[in-house]
């Protein structure tokens, strides 16, 4: 199995996540797309852990730390969205313009 096919899969998922972050209007979906980008990075880490130049387990350990940080980020991000929703009555990312000059 070629390493390039795994890397191509990760690149495609990363780009789709980027599209979601840039173009979606629902802020929860934006957060979800962010998780997809982190997952694509995890696929790269695990791929290099098996087929990289120096294959060893450190890649999987890094991916596990990545999962921890992603879970914490999802929890805090959703809490911030709830706080914004309570104040602005919307989670449309277009309407978050309090800091706009």
């Amino acid at each position: 199995m070629l390493i390039a096919s795994y890397l191509a899969l990760a690149a495609i998922l990363f780009v789709i996540g980027l599209m979601g972050v840039l173009t979606k209007r629902n802020a929860v979906i934006v957060l979800f797309s962010l998780e997809l980008m982190l997952n694509a990075a995890n696929i790269n880490l695990v791929t290099f852990s098996k087929m990289g130049l120096v294959p060893n387990l450190n890649g999987q350990v890094f991916a596990l730390f990545n999962v921890v940080v992603a879970a914490a980020e999802a929890a805090v991000g959703l809490a911030i969205l709830f706080a914004i929703y309570r104040n602005r009555e919307t989670i449309d990312a277009e309407k978050f313009n309090l800091l706009k000059g």
């Binding site: 173009t23 979606k24 209007r25 629902n26 929860v28 979906i29 957060l31 979800f32 998780e35 992603a70 879970a71 999802a74 929890a75 959703l78 969205l81 709830f82 929703y85 009555e89 919307t90 989670i91 449309d92 277009e94």
Partner: peptide
């Protein structure tokens, strides 16, 4: 995380179908 996000979608009011940018 999927269930958390679904809760986030359900607990905030949103349009049923989101329109394009």
């Amino acid at each position: 995380i999927s269930i958390l996000m679904l809760f986030g979608i359900m607990m905030t009011r949103h349009k049923e179908t989101e329109e394009k940018l």
